[in-house]
Design a protein around this nucleic acid. Sequence first.
RNA 1: CGGGGAGUAGUAUAGUGGUAGUACGUAUGCUUUGGGAGCAUAUAGUCCGAGUUCGAUUCUCGGCUCCCCGACCA
Length: 417
Amino acid sequence: MRQSQIFGKTLREAPKDEVSVNAKLLERGGFIYKNSAGVYSYLPLGWRVLSKIADIIREEMNAISAQEMFMPALVEKKYLDATSRWDVGIGFEARGKKEKSANFVLGWTHEEVLTAIASKYINSYKDLPLAAYQIQTKFRNELRAKSGLLRGKEFIMKDLYSFHASESDFRNYYEIVKKTYLNIFKRCGLKTVYTLAAGGDYTAENTHEFHVLCPVGEDVVFVCLKCGYAENKEISKLNAGGKCSKCAGKIIKENAIEVGNIFPLGTKYSDAFNLNFLNSKGKKESVIMGSYGIGLGRTMGAIVETLHDDNGIIWPEFAAPYKFHLVELKNSNPVVKKEAEKIYKTCLDKGIEVLYDDRDDKSAGEKFADADLIGIPTRLVISEKTLSKNSVEIKNRKTGKINLLKISNIKNDKSFI
RNA sequence: CGGGGAGUAGUAUAGUGGUAGUACGUAUGCUUUGGGAGCAUAUAGUCCGAGUUCGAUUCUCGGCUCCCCGACCA
C-alpha cells in the first residue's frame, strides 16, 4: 500500500479531551475514527489490525473444531423472553419507525438465538459435541462509554458456544478453550492472567476471565505473584499483600482489562429452548452448554495500552497492520525513487505486506515520526545515504536496532522470504 | 443515571459585548530532504435554541455533544 494513497492520515496532535493512550495513539495514527462516544469506525489501517486479530482467532477456533457462522444483529423479543432477559437493560431496543413498541433488540449476546437454532438440528448424542462461533458486532447500552476501544456501545466480538452430552465432556472442552484463549492472547502480544469471576446475567456459576494487567483497566483483580492464580475483586476473598489460597505466594491487587471470558451455562438455555438429545440408551437429556467471548476491539486497545512508547505504537508481529514500513527519503533523486519502487515491487511480488511511504511532500523527520507513531515492526529506509553503501537500512521498531542490508541480497534475505 | 470539566477553522489553541487571531493542516509555486523544513499567496471557524442588549462568539437560561470520577456493566 502506498502511504500517499491511504484513506486516513496521521495527526500531529492528539484529539483534545482524549486521555486514554489507545484512543490518542489510534486516532492520531489514522487507525480509527470516533463517530460517537464508544462508537468507532475502523479506517483501513485499523481494520487491517482488527482483521489480523480476527485471523488469529479464526485459526485457533478452527483448530478446536469450532465452526464459524453468522447470526442476526436483530434479535426478536421471543428469544429473550424465553430466558427472561428481554428486560435486562443492557441492550438497545430496535423499534421500526412505524411500530409502537420494539419487538427487537440489537444483539448484545447470542445464547438464545443459537440455542434455538441448535434445538432444530441437535437430536441425538451423535450430534454432540458441537461448537459454533461468529465474529460480529454487539450492541450494549453502556451508560458511560470510555477509554477509546476499551468500552464501547458497539464492538466487534467473537462469541463461541459449545454443546455437550455430558458435564465431563463440557469440562474437558472448557479447559481446551482456556488453553486456546491463552494462546490467542499470547499471539496477539498480550500477557494475560486467568481469573475466577462471577457470571452476571449469564449463569449462576463461577466463570473465568482473561485479564491484561493495566492501570487503565476497569476491573480489579487479585493475582498471586508466585503461581499466577487470580480472582476478580467482585467475588474474591483474597487480600492485597495476603497469601495465595493455592500456593501461599504473595497476592497483589491490580487494575486489569478484561479481553475475554468463558462461561459454563449448564442447561439454563437448553432447557429454555427444549434443546434435548437422546442418549445411547434412547433416553432424553438436556444439552450442557458453554459460551466463550473475546472482544476484538478491546484486544486491539489492550495491545496499544501495553505496547507503546512516547513516539507511538509498537505492534506485535502478528497484529501489525503491515510487516514492513518502507520509507524513501529525498525521492526527488530519481535513483532513490527507482530503488524504493524496486523494493516495493519485490515485497508485493513475494506477498510481503508493506506500507510504502512514497509521499514526496514530507520531510525526513515527519516520515520517521509517522513511522514510529504507526508502529509497524520493521522500518526499511532507502536514501542517498543508504544507497551510497548499496544498502537498505532495517530498523526494529521495538528495539531500535538498526542494520544495513545489501540491496543485492534482498531477494535471498530470510525476512524477505 | 449522579458529580466535575470542556465545546472557537480539518487539528490544537488565543481573544473580545462592536470587522475573530496564531500554529499546524490543506491548495498553488519555488527552494528543500536522516528526526515533525523555508519563503510567498490562498483556504477555512465561534455546538444548537431562547433570553438580555442598538448589537451576543462573549452575559443568562435551556438543550446537545465530548472527556473524567462514581453508579451500572458477559
